[in-house]
């Protein structure tokens, strides 16, 4: 099994409504591997996830998925209608029933014990995020796909969620495909980061900065061990129309990461947006 890709996308391109969303994208997720997608809003991250899941087909390129792959999927924002009354228990067992003990254990694992019979509309944003994570990991998937699992969660909450994901990967050896809304701070346990902006701008390992004193001071020792800075190294810049210009000064490390985040602003938290979309009492 080791070495066989769970999902492999090769040279995938997709145009939707006249707009080129994906352009020659190749990614590959293996068992036990954590892959993080970063990139600005509209970079095609969620679309790429849908391609990997088989929800969206490509114009060109190839998607190969291991047959009978068990997938745990947490979509970016479930637009739950306020009119649909649903308990956490019911939400967790929408498509597959599970023993109550497993439901309770999983909720405890993600840090929201005793929430089994709570109505989902009364959960806080952070609790809801954890319940969605619990749902994704409940069936012990071969591939865990998390689209922005730390949205609306504070930094310590993100750290906890990353720890849960890393523990699950260690326990059951699943592959993980994760979309991060943060361009530069990713989960330290990530094996491969892909920076996407229509095409793959760059990819690599997150820098091992967790022992860096400044980083520790900023986030505290626990967070510093869980989070990592991903140093982007691009050999091109994007014009406002999205076209690619080569020949940009190549620079490595944190410095460049800063430039990068300025070039692609408007990717931050929008907790109000998400709350509005989901709606609650």
């Amino acid at each position: 099994m080791i070495g066989t890709s769970l999902v492999e996308i090769r040279d995938g391109s997709l145009t939707l409504g006249g707009r080129r969303i994906l352009d020659g994208v190749s990614i590959d997720i293996r068992p036990g591997q954590i892959v993080t997608l970063v990139g600005p809003n509209g970079a095609g991250k969620s679309t790429l996830v849908k391609v990997a899941l088989g929800l969206q087909s490509l114009d060109r390129g190839e998607v190969r998925r291991l047959p009978n792959l068990r997938i745990g999927y947490q979509s970016q924002q479930i637009t739950l209608d306020q009119t649909l009354p649903l308990s956490v228990r019911r939400f967790l067992t929408l498509t597959h029933s599970q023993p109550v003990a497993l439901l309770q254990q999983t909720l405890a694992d993600v840090g929201v014990p005793h929430r089994l019979d709570t109505g989902i509309h009364t959960l806080s944003g952070g609790e809801w995020q954890r319940v969605m994570l619990a749902r994704a990991i409940l069936r012990h998937p071969d591939l865990l796909v998390l689209d922005e699992p730390t949205q609306n969660v504070d930094i310590m909450g993100s750290v906890e969620i990353y720890q849960i994901v890393a523990r699950l990967r260690d326990d059951i050896g699943c592959g993980v495909l994760m979309v991060s809304h943060d361009l530069n701070v990713v989960m330290a346990a990530t094996d491969q980061v892909y920076c996407l902006n229509g095409h793959i701008c760059c990819s690599g390992h997150p820098a091992d900065v967790s022992r860096d004193r400044e980083f520790q001071r900023l986030f505290g020792p626990t967070a510093a061990a869980t989070l990592a800075i991903y140093p982007h190294s691009h050999d091109h810049t994007h014009a406002p129309d999205g076209s690619v210009a080569h020949g940009h000064d190549q620079a490595d490390g944190l410095d460049h990461a800063h430039h990068h985040s300025h070039a692609h602003q408007d990717h931050g938290h929008h907790p109000d947006d998400a709350a509005d979309k989901r709606g609650r009492d």
Binding site: L53, G54, L55, I71, L86, T95, V145
Partner: peptide, 19 residues
């Protein structure tokens, strides 16, 4: 009833889970 509720909650999620 059950698959339709799953589809109503989230279409992508339901499709991925075979419902």
């Amino acid at each position: 009833w059950r698959p339709l509720i799953a589809l109503t909650v989230d279409q992508d999620m339901a499709i991925v889970e075979g419902a």
